[in-house]
Amino acid sequence: MSGIETVGVAGAGGTMGIGIAIVMARAGFATLAFDRSAAALERAIGQATVFLAKSVERGKLTREAADAIGGRITPVTDVAALKDCDLVIEAVFEDLETKKSLFAAIDGLCSPHAILASNTSTLSITEIAAASRRPERVVGLHFCLPAQLMRLVEVSPGLMTSEETFARAWAFMERCGQIPVKTQDKPGFILNALLVPFNNDAIRAVEAGVAQPAAIDRAVKAGLGYKMGPLELVDLVGLDTQLRLCEAFYPITLDPRASAPPLLRRMVAAGLLGRKSGRGFFDYAGETIYGG
């Protein structure tokens, strides 16, 4: 038993936060969707409504079920509203100070039994936990994008996390229909620790003239059976995001594969950010290929 009934998401106006809120509301939990930006929150709630309506259209949900899920999500812009939560998952900006001050604030509001979880991709759970007076009740819950569709969650105990907290968080993820995997509190956990250097290697292969981006992606897909090539994936995630991930990992790990390839820096500087800017390794306006 997780002993978790009332839940909150901080940063629910963001991409990950609203997805996580949908997951919990879908599992039947009254979910407080907190964001300090009312505009972001309104936009995200609108996106959740569209997602639920599409699920009805596709026959994945009944209209009644979709309405009930939407009804369980309550938008709030005052952090104090989270005070009765048994679990708060934060998905605010990937910035240690932002997360620490939020954790300190929530720590002062919620009852001592409440669990505080972080969806951080690159920061240390132990460091974030140190900002609260309950590091034994802090755990990493790293969802994948898009959270409302991806079932995997990396569950990471910090150095001080109690076994009970870990077990409650794990059980709660299972109740939400997610598939938890346990990883240590290390940079990038499993997923990003494997993916970020792999994507960098693909960028370095372009840089080294091994092959054109399209050939690299084609080879990886046909040779390894991956659904997506590394360069189309970087275009999807955003080259700026890939650069930020490198900048978070490299200083901690000193793994040369995690350092930002010069080509990545140049492309970001040139505004070639991938899909979001219309061009990255591939051109989304036409079918032209970068370097082609």
Binding site: C144, L152, E154, Q184, I190, L191, M228
Partner: peptide, 27 residues
């Protein structure tokens, strides 16, 4: 890397393989 992570205790083999299948869509 995956083999080294396993040696270093980052996660079990099952957790690593499952993460790649579910999180990254690898077969």
């Amino acid at each position: 890397s995956a083999l080294r992570f396993l040696d270093e205790g980052l996660a079990t083999q099952e957790a690593m393989d499952l993460t790649c299948r579910l999180g990254l869509g690898y077969p």
